[in-house]
Design a protein around this nucleic acid. Structure first.
Length: 908
RNA sequence: GCGCGGUUAGCUCAGUGGUAGAGCACUACAUUGACACUGUAGGGGUCACAGGUUCAAACCCUGUAUCGCGCACCA
């Protein structure tokens, strides 16, 4: 057997193993297999994007699920792919063109520009998928999909046509969230509210005098004086304090004209002045009010949010100004006209588009909308348990969204994406969407339109818009499986989805709805079966967001986002994976610290060195059967611990079953480091040192048996190091990937608590050494006066003594029948009283300190216990077993206290 | 404003009724044979606060504070 390197070197291992796995086709899913299916579709990352830590966590969890399922004998499909990310990619290419060629998208024809984006995609499209390979993802790359693949594109358009025909998709002029930076509409779900510091401007609206009235005015508090020219009315609460003015007119202060005072329930008297200025074309609420009162819809903003209020009027100078400059200027103009009463600092929430970092402009615009089908069914999926969210509390968020669902604005004024399959008759003149003018609103216009994929004939023009990227990804769970070879029949519904809660509406909910409505697996004989056959997925695991140590989101602009591949180079892919998964808390965001990755690497190295040590003792037996050999109590103890790792109160099986990955990782970590390495391996050294030890073979077999379990349990988390050790050490020859996932291990019938007692005694003895400040390499003689139980019922053997001596770094352990004549520092252990020599080692003053401290703690414990035992109420109502525990504790503590007092007495 | 989640050691987190835990960081000691990516020991906590339930509360209930997230017709 080759000797292993002194430390685990991931670089020597990772690429070689990944290549081997690929060549041998381990990740390939076979739809013809008779094995039970297990499937996951990868949330497709932006095709030209780069790997982030979020991707690492997310895909590591998918890999854990996939690899474990393979080891459980399932036919696994983990389907990878990428997303065309319409606006994001287009923006990136436009930025590149601006910098490299000083051109905008409008310097090209649409076809030329889209060709440039494809070129960009060819150049950068492979980066993220190659990065996923670097971290060991076991997806079936032969099935990689892209949301703009020809077939996929056609499927998206088919869905559009179908929904149009079914009446779920319509075109309309409505208020949308307009991004003046990207010049496109976006959906409600893509608007991010942000607190903004601004001002509340108090503006005088003078009443148009009527015969017999005094000059009067109403005051409006507004954050947006730049929209005053678009005011169509003032609204007040019906029957409220301003109700007397209803029906009168006021002078609009800029672009002076009379506008009516109207009653509307949308007005809250407690807000501002209780008088609301109504700009139906620039505010969602005002739009509704405008419709109710048949007001005029005046749009005074260009698509890029500059003022454009044509005609002759008194505020003409605002034209051409950006909305924020216009805000300032209009306030000044009001001031100059004596119409601005005051302005006060004010914080309100404004919607932003994340991509362009621009304040969203509520804007009247002609767009395509989708009314969601199957909403009640989608709600039932979760409430009736067909689909489960982990952690569960996201269910409520999902339900709330569905209960308040609004139609989805699905058209985008973007060139890179799925073109809307709608055609306009030759005689129709469509206004190009990028013209820099406000829209002409004519809600009554009817269009001669045809909705179909192919051009209906000469002269017909296709709608210039593309579809929201999410309108393609909502089909991802099943459309990626359309391969004509039975893949969808075998693997859909998918088993699990792993994603972030930030796209619960954008993607997760919509995929469930798509499954319900399009029924990719067809109709079955009962409603329930139809439902179950068409679930997009059965379990959804939501990861937390990764933040930096200050709690900020990781982002490129903040520069707080570590490069995952740098971390791989430093700590290895397994170190990164294991470190991240072990620390990721359930249902909460992750506070990233590189130290955690370092721990992951250290753990892999620990595992490596345990195996290295084993390989020095001779060849490994891949079929080791420890229960067939005579065994030490330490081997039995180890086997017992393994049993509990599988079946204890907290165990790996349950943790993974409950999607508690950090718990599973922590359990294995603690087991390997604290049970296996720190206890069993140290005790095994005694066996290994003596070739003639009768338990040597049993210890070797236990070692191999337990290590075989550990490597397999760990493989989904740390695929490279476990595979390397598995094959190099001879546990197997081919691969660990297709070995059996271990779920249980029996206890030894011969198990006794003695090994635990020895470990506990060693801990106590080591503490004693530490307290009298013995250098850790100084060998000293210990004496033990065994308790009666130890001396009579279960003798303290020489082998046990050797192990205890090794743990204590003792030169010898003298077993005495009575305390030594000249007793030194003493401690109570499960084995009896443990003594250090009185002379030569101990400074009496330090020893007195030690005993005094120990006595104080004992007295405190004793007092606490006695308080309980003295409380009649407590004794009466607590369970008897608990009371017994307290009684036993009291006895021990009394003896300990007595003995410590004696020691203290002797020390003077 | 409503809803969800958090608040435990310097840091990151476990801990769903019975004497407060882990890793990191810190301090001391130790480099002969698995591992310094190590070993041994130590210091360090009014479990956010206030009430309540209970024999007993970090844990259950109510309220408050605070942080994060989501939702809302936030003029």
């Amino acid at each position: 057997m080759p000797e292993l390197a002194k430390a685990y070197e991931p670089k020597q291992v990772e690429d070689r193993l990944y290549q081997k796995w690929q060549e041998r086709g381990y990740f390939k899913a076979n739809p013809g297999s008779s094995r039970k299916p297990y499937s996951i579709v990868m949330p497709p990352p932006n095709v030209t994007g780069k790997l982030t830590l979020g991707h690492v966590l997310n895909n590591t969890i998918q890999d854990i699920l996939s690899r474990k399922a393979r080891m459980e004998g399932k036919e696994v499909l983990w389907l990878p792919g990428t997303d065309h990310a319409g606006l994001a990619t287009q923006t990136a290419v436009e930025k590149h063109l601006r910098q490299a060629e000083k051109k905008t998208r409008h310097d090209f024809t649409r076809e030329e520009f889209v060709a440039r984006v494809w070129k960009w995609k060819e150049e950068f499209g492979g980066i993220i998928t190659s990065q996923l390979r670097k971290i060991g993802c076991s997806c079936d790359w032969s099935r990689e999909r892209f949301t703009l693949d020809k077939d996929y594109e056609r499927a998206v358009q088919e869905v559009f046509v179908r929904l149009y025909q079914e009446g779920f998709i319509y075109r309309g002029t409505r208020m949308v969230n307009w991004c003046p930076g990207s010049l496109t509409a976006i959906s409600d779900e893509e608007v991010i509210p942000r607190a903004q510091k601004g001002f509340l401007y108090y503006v005088k609206y003078e009443l148009v005098p009527e015969p017999g009235t005094e000059p009067e005015y109403l005051v409006v508090a507004t954050t947006r004086p730049e929209t005053i020219m678009a005011d169509a009315a003032l609204a007040v609460k019906p029957g409220g304090k301003w109700a007397a003015y209803i029906g009168r007119n006021v002078w609009r202060p800029l672009h002076r004209a009379p506008i009516p005072v109207i009653p509307d329930d949308a007005v809250e008297e407690g807000f501002g002045t209780g008088v609301l200025k109504v700009t139906p074309a620039h505010d969602k609420t005002d739009y509704e009010i405008g419709k109710r009162h048949h007001l005029e819809f005046t749009d005074i903003l260009t698509p890029d949010a500059r003022i454009h209020d044509p005609g002759e009027h008194d505020a003409i100078e605002l034209n051409g100004l950006d909305r924020f400059a216009a805000r300032k200027r209009s306030a000044e103009m009001l001031q100059e006209r004596g119409l601005l009463l005051k302005e006060e600092p004010y914080e309100n929430t404004v919607g932003f588009s994340e991509r362009a970092n621009e304040a969203i402009e509520p804007r009247l615009s002609k767009q395509w909308f989708m009314r969601y089908p199957n909403v009640p069914e989608a709600l039932a999926l979760l409430s009736e348990g067909y689909v489960k969210f982990h952690p569960e509390h996201w269910t409520k968020v999902y339900a709330h969204w569905l209960e308040h669902i609004q139609d989805w604005c699905i058209s985008r004024q973007v060139w890179w994406g799925h073109r809307i399959p709608v055609w306009y008759a030759p005689e129709m003149v469509e206004v190009p969407s990028d013209i820099m003018m406000p829209v002409t609103v004519n809600p009554l216009a009817t269009n001669d339109v045809v909705c179909q994929i192919d051009c209906p004939g000469e002269g017909w023009t296709q709608d210039p818009d593309t579809l929201d990227t999410w309108f393609s990804s909502w089909l991802w769970a099943y459309e990626t499986m359309r391969t004509g070879d039975g893949t969808r029949q075998k693997f859909y519904p998918t088993s699990a989805l792993v994603t972030g809660p930030d796209i619960i509406f954008l993607w997760v909910a919509r995929m469930l709805i798509a499954g319900l409505h399009f029924q990719p697996n067809g109709e079955k004989d009962t409603v329930e079966k139809t439902l179950e056959a068409n679930l997009a997925f059965r379990d959804v695991y939501f990861t937390g967001l990764i933040r930096d140590r200050q709690g900020r989101k990781l982002s490129k602009s903040l520069g707080n986002s570590p490069e995952p591949l740098d971390l791989v180079a430093k700590y290895g892919a397994d170190g990164l994976r294991f470190g991240l998964v072990r620390i990721a808390p359930q249902g909460a965001d992750i506070c990233f610290d590189e130290k955690q990755i370092e721990e992951g690497r250290n753990f892999c190295n620990k595992l490596w060195n345990i195996c290295r040590f084993r390989s020095m003792q001779g060849p490994i037996d891949p079929n080791a059967e420890p229960f067939k050999h005579p065994r030490s109590i330490f081997a039995d103890e180890m086997l017992d611990r393994l049993h509990y790792l599988h079946a204890g109160e907290r165990n790996v099986q349950d943790a993974l079953h409950q999607f508690n990955f950090s718990e599973a990782a922590s359990l294995i970590y603690d087991f390997v480091w604290n049970e296996f390495a720190a206890r069993f391996v140290e005790a095994a050294k005694i066996d290994f040192a003596h070739g003639d030890s009768p338990t040597r073979e049993g210890t070797l077999a236990t070692f191999d048996y337990v290590m075989s379990h550990v490597l397999r349990l760990l493989h989904p988390f740390a695929p490279f190091v476990t595979e390397e050790l598995w094959c190099e050490l001879g546990f197997g020859t081919e691969t660990i990937q297709t070995t059996l996932w271990p779920t249980q291990s029996p206890r030894s019938k011969a198990w006794s608590p003695r090994a635990q007692e020895i470990y506990q005694t060693a801990d106590i003895g080591r503490t004693m050494r530490g307290e009298i400040k013995l250098p850790s390499n100084q060998k000293v003689p210990f004496s033990l006066v065994p308790s009666s139980l130890v001396s009579e019922e279960k003798p303290f053997t020489d082998e046990q003594k050797s192990v205890l001596a090794a743990f204590l770094n003792a030169s010898e352990i003298k077993v005495l029948s009575a305390p030594p004549a000249d007793p030194g520092p003493k401690a109570f252990t499960p084995l009896g009283e443990l003594y250090l020599p009185a002379t030569g080692l101990v400074d009496p003053a330090a020893e007195k300190d030690r005993v005094t401290k120990e006595l104080a703690k004992t007295e405190k414990d004793l007092e606490q216990t006695r308080r309980k035992l003295g409380d009649a109420n407590m004794l009466a109502k607590a369970p008897p077993a608990k009371v017994e525990e307290w009684r036993a504790l009291e006895v021990t503590l009394i003896a300990k206290e007595k003995s410590l007092r004696e020691s203290l007495g002797k020390l003077g």
